[in-house]
């Protein structure tokens, strides 16, 4: 089996007196899709944000490609290698679709404008948004915004993609288009860590499912193990509640 490229060990994080992560850890291997599931407030998003250093864990280690990222010298260079998509899309509202994808490449990777544009259009095409390259971001629907956000992250040619509830802010009819894009990425072998409430998607796409509860990892395993044969009563409680919704 391949060496893990992301190793999270015993990560603790508190906000004030609230302990959100109480020592969690898991591994991600290359080309693997890991889905983090669990109730709101169980620490999934915080854990994901720690991987990209948007939050700094209080304790524990996170190694990515063998590098201890909590003591890395150049946070920005590290972040450029790890793409992230947010629940609220967070497209730059002072730029149009194309510039959203071009600007970070020019600034962070120091690409020429021509090269950045070529990459941007390729990635926009992949998510089916090439025709909207000149559109203002406020004119797009939620699903379109999220697809652009994915393209923007892909333009940086990340080795890992992190998704923080990418479909939670979408109208139901737009969830599918975003999940399809993510499914494509999974098929292409991109390593992904996904926080999601889409159980059907997790079951179908994930190589590994991690169930978090109250700041701890309650159970992890293949989708089949988690969804069909959960060992922990908490996992089965959660799944029952999620499926009946």
């Amino acid at each position: 089996m391949a060496e893990p490229i992301v190793e999270i060990r015993d990560v603790h994080k508190s906000f004030g007196s609230l302990e959100v992560l109480k020592g969690v850890g898991f591994c991600v291997r290359e080309r693997e899709v890991v889905c983090l599931i669990g109730r709101s407030g169980s620490g999934k998003s915080t854990l994901l944000r720690c991987v990209n250093l948007l939050e700094k864990p209080d304790r524990g280690t996170i190694r990515v490609f063998g590098e201890d990222i909590l003591h890395t010298k150049d946070v920005n260079a590290y972040r450029a290698k790890v793409g992230m998509c947010f629940q609220q899309f967070n497209l730059f509202s002072n730029m149009n679709v194309l510039k959203n994808c071009v600007y970070p490449q020019c600034k962070v990777l120091k690409r020429s404008r021509e090269e950045a544009q070529r990459t941007a259009l390729q990635n926009l095409e992949q998510v089916g948004m090439k025709d909207f390259a000149g559109a203002g971001v406020t004119t797009l629907s939620g699903g379109q915004k999220q697809r652009v956000a994915i393209a923007r992250a892909l333009c940086m040619q990340p080795k890992i993609m992190l998704f923080d509830e990418p479909t939670s802010a979408l109208d139901p009819e737009m969830v599918g288009e975003v999940l399809n894009v993510m499914r494509d990425l999974a098929d292409k072998g991109l390593t992904m860590i996904i926080v999601t409430h889409e159980m059907g998607f997790a079951r179908e796409v994930a190589d590994k499912v991690v169930f978090m509860d109250q700041g701890r990892i309650e159970e992890e395993g293949t989708p089949d193990q988690i969804f069909s044969h959960p060992q922990s009563p908490r996992t089965s409680d959660f799944l029952r509640a999620s499926v009946s919704k």
Partner: peptide, 15 residues
């Protein structure tokens, strides 16, 4: 300005 804008920029590696 929505703090998400800053987060997105930082997550892309912008200083």
């Amino acid at each position: 300005v929505d703090p998400g804008q800053t987060e997105a920029a930082r997550s892309l590696g912008m200083s």
